[in-house]
């Protein structure tokens, strides 16, 4: 499973460089996700722009990834392609994950937020 992670201080961007997150790679995705984010803190933006297919096993892996981050961190999704968007919408996971058109928009939304500290 081809994932890469780049930390940007208060958050990180995790990019998926595979075209499918399905039953054949769901466990590898979870393991790799855990390895990549364990050394960092802060929210994670998952860039799915290269992923054109997600099945229910892949969806389960995204949920597992969300849980791995714990209560103090948020998993945001960016760049949903049409088939991925269809699965996320039908399963109502769009109510669970903050979703952005692409990674750039996810970063811009973050920068536009008022700072939590005075």
């Amino acid at each position: 499973m081809n994932l890469s992670f780049k930390s940007h201080g208060t958050f990180g961007i995790l990019r998926v460089d595979d075209s499918r997150i399905d039953a054949s790679v769901a466990i590898a995705f979870k393991d790799r996700f855990r390895d990549l984010v364990s050394g960092s803190s802060g929210d994670v933006i998952l860039d799915l722009a290269k992923v054109d297919f997600l099945d229910s096993s892949g969806l389960g892996a995204l949920v597992a990834a969300r849980k791995l981050l714990g209560a103090g961190r948020v998993l945001e999704l960016a760049g949903l392609t049409p088939a991925v968007d269809k699965v996320m919408t039908l399963t109502r996971m769009t109510t669970v994950f903050p979703i952005h058109p692409d990674a750039q928009a996810a970063v811009a939304a973050r920068n536009a937020q008022p700072s939590a500290t005075p």
Binding site: D55, S56, S57, L59, G60, A61, V63, A64, R66, K67, G70, A71, L75, V87, L90, T91, R92, M93, T95, V96
Partner: peptide
């Protein structure tokens, strides 16, 4: 069942047949 306000209790399976 999913509770958007409590992501740590989300189910990881059971979506296949409904999909």
């Amino acid at each position: 069942a999913i509770d958007p306000d409590d992501p740590l209790t989300l189910p990881e399976g059971g979506f296949g047949w409904p999909l």
